Simulated scan of single mutants.
Amino acid sequence: MSDESHDAAAPPGVSGRRLIYGRRRGRKLSPTRESRFGDWLPRVSFTLPAPGVTLDPATLFTSPKQAYWVEIGFGDGGHLFELSERHPEIGFIGIEPYEHGVAKLVMRIAERHERGDHRDNIRILTDDARLLLKALPDRSVQRGFTLFPDPWPKKRHQWRRIVNADTLADWARLIPSGGELRVATDVPDYQRWMLRHILAEPRFEWLAACSADWLQRPEDWPASKYEQKAIAAGRTPHYYRLRRL
């Protein structure tokens, strides 16, 4: 029986705790980037409310948006920023704990503002994404994204995987009927893991009729830097689109 056939249990007491794994800091930012980052991050970031308090995404923005999209683990922010360029009417919430990735997205926002484009449609959280999912109200997120997350390949670490039964249930609560969740990975074991959990969540419909539907990225799905690196290394990304029933 293969290792992915059973979920590895989380250690006792994990539920409800802030848990962020992997690196949070890399090389020191340059003085110029550090200064700009320090100036702009407070303008676009937010913190989680107290446990049990609901967070209305509309309160994060200076003006109401037509809908709110959430991306967990945005990496260097390329995918999220490109979507924000294409959809100024949408409010985007991105979660990423790694400082250099956050800095790159913040730089893009600052540079856009300096070009005279003052749209205000991105908010950033550097905390535990699972706690944000718990805090948002029902049917408040029209589209969600978890793209190329850390696969945590060792069986004893698989409970850390962000695509799991619990987070899929959270997405199903947050996304209204007709909304969409998009997930992707280039790791074969995680592909099987994702698909098994996707098919076990009855509130989502997998939008795939043939292999091209999960082996080719849709035109309205911007490429990410990690995805491009994976393809260059000979790995095959899988793209899963799920519609909320």
Rank of each mutant, 00 (worst) to 15 (best):
A8P: 04
A8E: 07
A10C: 08
P11E: 05
S15N: 08
G16Y: 03
G16P: 09
Y21P: 00
R27I: 03
K28W: 10
L29W: 07
R36T: 08
F37R: 04
F46Q: 09
T47A: 14
A50Y: 01
P51F: 13
T59M: 08
T62C: 01
P64A: 10
Y68E: 12
W69Y: 13
I72R: 00
D76A: 13
L83I: 00
P88Q: 04
P88V: 02
F92R: 08
E96K: 09
Y98H: 15
G101C: 02
M107W: 04
I109K: 02
E111R: 08
R112M: 10
G116F: 14
D117N: 13
R119W: 00
R119C: 05
R119K: 04
D120H: 06
D120S: 15
I122Q: 15
I122V: 14
R130H: 02
L136P: 08
R139Y: 09
R139V: 02
T146R: 00
R156M: 02
R156W: 06
Q158T: 11
R160C: 09
R160G: 01
R161E: 04
I162T: 13
T167Y: 02
L168P: 03
L168F: 15
A169N: 10
A172E: 05
I175C: 05
I175A: 02
I175Y: 11
G178L: 11
G178W: 14
V183I: 15
D189Y: 05
Q191T: 13
W193K: 09
W193P: 10
L195W: 03
H197G: 12
I198K: 06
A200M: 09
P202L: 14
R203W: 04
F204N: 09
A208N: 12
S211R: 13
A212P: 03
P218W: 06
A223F: 01
K225L: 05
